[in-house]
């Protein structure tokens, strides 16, 4: 029951954020969208993802978007979309979502232990990760040890993003 309520809030937040002409309100709505998403992750027992969503999605992204907004105008410029375009967009979106919904029919049930995703490497992580890495939380074991290269790459991406902003915006280096 609560899952449906959360998903409903999620959709309402997303729609409201799209409709909002006031960009500050839209950013706030996106922040609450991320926060509800974090609760959904918690409901799915994915606490690490929920933690990331709450701190990165709801926290720092909102701050950085507001910081960006301080350099631009607060209101969206009023430009009306022609009716023909709206109809075309609507048809494309509906077709895409129909295809996506059709795709979910073949998916395994939620939490089905026989699902392919749980058959490949997941048993190894669950059974051997403590032995092999000495870390209790196997999400951390996967991130830091089994997929160490990925994590190093992600850190380098964040570092690179920071350097790019410095090169672009800093007057004197």
């Amino acid at each position: 029951m609560i899952d449906f309520a959360l998903l409903l809030f999620l959709v309402v937040c997303a729609l409201a954020a799209i409709q909002m002409k006031d960009l500050l309100s839209a950013i706030m709505l996106l922040g609450s969208y991320s926060f509800i998403m974090a609760v959904v992750w918690t409901r799915l027992n994915a606490v690490d993802v929920a933690f990331t969503e709450a701190s990165v999605g709801a926290g720092i992204t909102t701050i950085l978007l507001i910081a960006t907004l301080s350099r631009t105008k607060r209101r969206e410029m009023g430009q009306t979309v022609p009716l023909v375009n709206s109809v075309i967009y609507g048809v494309v979106v509906m077709l895409t979502s129909a295809v996506l919904l059709y795709g979910t029919i073949d998916m395994p049930l939620f939490g089905d232990p026989g699902a392919p995703a749980y058959q490949h490497v997941a048993p190894r992580y669950i059974e051997k990760s403590y032995e092999e890495t000495g870390v209790v939380n196997f999400v951390t074991a996967v991130l830091a040890s089994y997929r160490g290269y990925d994590t190093l790459g992600e850190t380098a991406v964040i570092f690179g993003a920071g350097m790019c902003v410095i090169l672009l915006l800093r007057r004197k280096i």
């Binding site: 720092i60 910081a67 902003v165 410095i166």
Partner: peptide
Amino acid sequence: VMITLYFLIGR
């Protein structure tokens, strides 16, 4: 990086 971004982007 987050601190740097805020200092550079924020006004």
